[in-house]
């Protein structure tokens, strides 16, 4: 690895650039430390969970559609939306499995390869099962996410090995 030449860097300290006024900063910190604010914010997150869950289910329908043509970018886009929303929808396992799928697709696309249909299908089935299960305890999501993560590790190792052999 070649070393970079040191660059001439100018440091600009807070105060030398415009920062929040001390009155505003104090007010904001007071609000951030107020237990009532934390409760109100927690209520906001809880109140949005049902709406987000509906959105996750809609994205699951969409990802199953785009998976038919095995377009990795389109599948990634939907899986990314699912992982972004699922946690706040009370669907933690769904989010974790979607994250594993995103990791796989991202690596495959960066390697210029096509994703394996079977790997994508396994993830999508697990995502749908986790999202539709009655409650978190019956989703067995952690175990499934771990298994799929190991599968993805193996698949990505295969890609790296085949690239190295060229």
């Amino acid at each position: 690895m070649s070393e970079r030449k040191p660059a001439a860097a100018t440091m600009i300290q807070p105060g030398a650039y415009p920062v929040m006024s001390s009155a505003a900063a104090m007010g904001l910190m007071r609000a951030l430390r107020d237990p009532e604010t934390s409760l109100a914010a927690a209520r906001v997150i809880a109140d949005h969970a049902a709406e987000l869950r509906t959105a996750v289910l809609a994205h699951i329908d969409r990802v199953e559609e785009v998976a038919q043509i095995l377009d990795p970018a389109a599948i990634y886009e939907q899986a990314h939306e699912i992982r972004g929303l699922a946690g706040n929808a009370g669907l933690a396992a769904t989010g974790r499995i979607s994250n594993v799928l995103c990791r796989y697709l991202d690596a495959v696309m960066r390697a210029g390869k096509a994703p394996q249909r079977g790997v994508v299908a396994l993830h999508l089935e697990a995502i749908a099962r986790a999202a539709h299960a009655e409650d978190e305890a019956t989703r067995l999501g952690d175990a499934v996410a771990n298994e799929l993560s190991q599968l993805v590790d193996r698949k990505l190792a295969e890609i790296n090995e085949s690239d190295a052999q060229r």
Binding site: M11, I12, P14, M20, L28, M29
Partner: peptide, 13 residues
């Protein structure tokens, strides 16, 4: 951000 605003760095890159 409020309590520990960071210095800014300006360089070529």
């Amino acid at each position: 951000i409020v309590e520990r605003p960071r210095p800014y760095v300006r360089c070529k890159t």
